[in-house]
């Protein structure tokens, strides 16, 4: 059970890291959304740290590889979508490895990531803004 949650923790560290450069390239409502998303990922990370205490927590890395350089607004939106899709995938995987409170934690996290990805697709004018199976790799 802890393997999947440890993977989720690493993904959350990476998400928090990514929202730094993402926020720099955005303004207005999009920047506010980036700040809210970063805060949400910090909350998920903190809950995981509590959940995993005593099971050998992976440390946060100094830096994470981004899918592309965040050089402008369009890149920021693409990376934000990517971040939410990747975190959704690790949380979806955690569902199969958890029960009860941890399953609920994983489901709430998956849902939050999926909803944020939807918002970023709307900002990026990607159509459709929804996917059929959030967190599942496209067939």
């Amino acid at each position: 059970m802890t393997g999947e949650l440890t993977a989720a923790l690493s993904a959350e560290y990476a998400a928090i890291f990514a929202y730094g450069p993402i926020g720099v390239q955005l303004t207005g409502a999009e920047q506010a959304a980036a700040r809210a998303a970063e805060a949400a990922h910090r909350t998920l990370r903190d809950a995981l740290v509590v959940s995993l205490t005593g099971s050998g927590l992976p440390p946060a890395a100094a830096a994470y590889r981004l899918p592309e350089p965040v050089v402008d607004r369009a890149a920021a939106l693409r990376v934000a979508i990517s971040v939410e899709e990747k975190t959704a995938a690790v949380w979806r995987a955690a569902l199969s490895a958890t029960v009860d409170a941890q399953r609920r934690q994983a489901l709430e996290a998956l849902t939050g990531c999926a909803v944020r990805a939807t918002r970023w697709r709307r900002f990026a004018k990607i159509d459709p803004i929804t996917v059929a199976f959030p967190g599942k790799a496209p067939a």
């Binding site: 979806r92 998956l110 990531c113 909803v115 939807t118 199976f133 959030p134």
Partner: peptide, 16 residues
């Protein structure tokens, strides 16, 4: 995983 994905999808529909 499947059922959770369906729940999350329905939440995104509310957003959409």
């Amino acid at each position: 995983a499947l059922v959770g994905s369906i729940a999350a999808a329905r939440a995104t529909h509310l957003e959409a």
